[in-house]
Design a protein around this nucleic acid. Structure first.
Lengths: 341, 341
DNA sequence: CTGAAAGCGCTAACAT
DNA sequence: ATGTTAGCGCTTTCAG
């Protein structure tokens, strides 16, 4: 006898129970429940009736072990609090729709060691695919992904070498494009407002690209300020106030995310700044939730739902080879920048 | 021989491979990797070295089947787009911290049929526990949860009969409490702005409680308006404009969520309304992200992180019996209601 | 401290 | 159309 620990609930109901109740073999029950192979209509209904009557719930653990097939897709993201990631998940859900694959989410809290553990944990369930946010990983994590023997897709940004397939936008290029847009609109005294977290790689890449873009035009950032902790209206407001109090002559504020930009926008309007003439602002991501602010914030669409969808399609297509997909972030001028000219 | 399908990657590495490499039995490897039983230090290091060298990733599927133990907790929520649910997940993560349990999330998209499927899917993985948002379920889903033989916790709201344990707040009571607060502050011509979705049970319960509260004071809603689709600033703004254009004499607006209330607030300020004297507003949830609006919106804390944490603790404590935990939502007056008087 | 044997619940492969 | 057999990779149990 094998023991069950005292916390185990009622003993599990098995295929055998259903088979006995229906008066057929386990194999037939298995076939009926999975719609595999030809089974007579009479037998089918008998089996269904028995399964329903008993309240049978199949054991996917056993099924997965026997068939060597697990219809799960691991998804590893930094956090659920930052709205970008739920949006990516939505895209993944769309891409997996009409497939029998289901996403399983794990979070790394922006910590690569944690990410490595989560990836290990995920792979130990032998999923059909793995989607991981970012291209920065520990060596061990990279090795695991390379040897996983399943489709692996890195998502969000394409700035850096990827393990296998990669779907995202170049955040360096996004920052650079933003610099170009801002300069073309005549702004010259530009401040950057970002996160002090070294773990937010994409934010840093945008800043880098942005500064590169300014440098090419012979300019540099007039000032910059960084915050710790989560983005939000309060953060954006406070940063803006701090930055302008020490650099009152700035004519543009580029925020690392729309969330902070929104807080900044409200602060500026409250203080009577003339936007976009006296000062312009721009954010990043294009959060739909912010439609309805007094002014539409200039931003760049991070294409996160598209990214999730494409990544899911690669997994669903069982592509082991690494076709990289670089999407283009679209600049959305909104109301907070002057027209090009 | 058992076939492998052509898409399967390299054949899986097994305990046996590690055992051979280390020159010990599979059993010893198993013990080392799980820290079970006494193993000599010499053997331990040999095994670890072999496992690392081979890049061995254990197969949890096989382990789970053999041990009848799965360290996963299923979590079923309506959506990830509504920020309340990521917050609940954060709480669950906290509550599961220092445990070997890991949450696995599934979404129902506010559809009970879909929810039933997700619950079935989750249970078929034989998790150690199940957390489900809401107390409304299909009969079949309820039956599955009752017979699951694992700890099951319904979260978010306590308004209705629960299957097993239940952790949440009473949204009916929350609505009623809000009515009391508003009336005590002298507002009398009150409008409600909510969702037209019949699937958002908690929103409906708050409205119900709110109307009950007004009725007890001999009042009723002066007007109400509903929106389809997601909440957001744009939605809040549009609803507010519509409602006030047909009922310009309202002196209070109660929104189903802070998100809409924020859009409404911005609209009202833009139009020069005197808040909170000419008109007061209140929302629900207490979203931290909104700190930084021109005025702090009166709201009620939905205690969602606490709810997640408590639910996780019940699962971690392996409580099969149903201790219900009713938390109290706290009213936060902010700046958009007059003082009581 | 280590190993051998048995089997978890299911499905692939091969009967019939 | 249905049944039989073998075993997925691991852990439990029991034997040393």
């Amino acid at each position: 006898m094998r023991g069950r620990n005292p916390f185990d609930g009622k003993p599990q109901m098995t295929l055998r129970d259903v088979a006995e109740a229906a008066g057929v073999s386990e194999m037939t029950v298995s076939r009926v429940l999975r719609n595999r192979g030809d089974v007579s209509e009479r037998t089918r209904s008998k089996v269904f009736a028995a399964a329903r009557a008993l309240g049978y719930v199949p054991n996917k653990i056993a099924g997965a072990l026997a068939s060597n097939r697990v219809n799960l897709v691991g998804v590893v993201i930094p956090s659920l609090s930052n709205m970008v990631f739920p949006d990516v998940l939505t895209g993944i859900g769309d891409g997996l729709h009409e497939t029998d694959l289901q996403p399983v989410v794990g979070t790394s809290n922006y910590d690569l060691e944690q990410e490595e553990k989560v990836i290990f944990e995920m792979l130990s369930w032998r999923p059909s695919g793995l989607i991981v946010a970012g291209v920065e990983h520990t060596d061990a994590a990279r090795k695991m992904m390379e040897n996983a023997g399943i489709p692996v897709v890195e998502v969000m940004d394409t700035d850096g070498p990827s393990v296998a397939a990669c779907v995202g936008i170049s955040h360096v290029a996004a920052g650079r494009a933003m610099a170009e847009e801002i300069l073309a609109r005549g702004y010259r005294k530009i401040g950057y407002l970002g996160s002090s977290s070294l773990r937010d790689f994409r934010s840093q890449k945008r800043q880098q690209g942005f500064e590169d873009g300014l440098k090419e035009a012979g300019l540099s950032l007039a000032d910059k300020i960084f915050y710790a902790g989560p983005s939000g209206f309060g953060t954006g407001r406070a940063m803006t106030e701090d930055l302008l109090s020490r650099s009152p002559d700035l004519d543009f504020l580029y925020y690392n995310t729309d969330m902070n930009a929104a807080g900044g926008l409200l602060y500026l309007l409250e203080k009577g700044y003339d936007i976009p003439n006296q000062i312009g602002i721009a954010g990043f991501n294009s959060f739909a939730i912010l439609d309805g602010l007094p002014l539409r914030i200039a931003t760049m669409d991070s294409r996160r739902a598209d990214i999730g969808r494409e990544a899911a399609k690669i997994i669903a297509g069982r592509a082991l080879s690494g076709a990289d997909i670089g999407l283009s972030p679209e600049f959305l001028a909104g109301d907070t920048v002057r027209p090009r000219g």
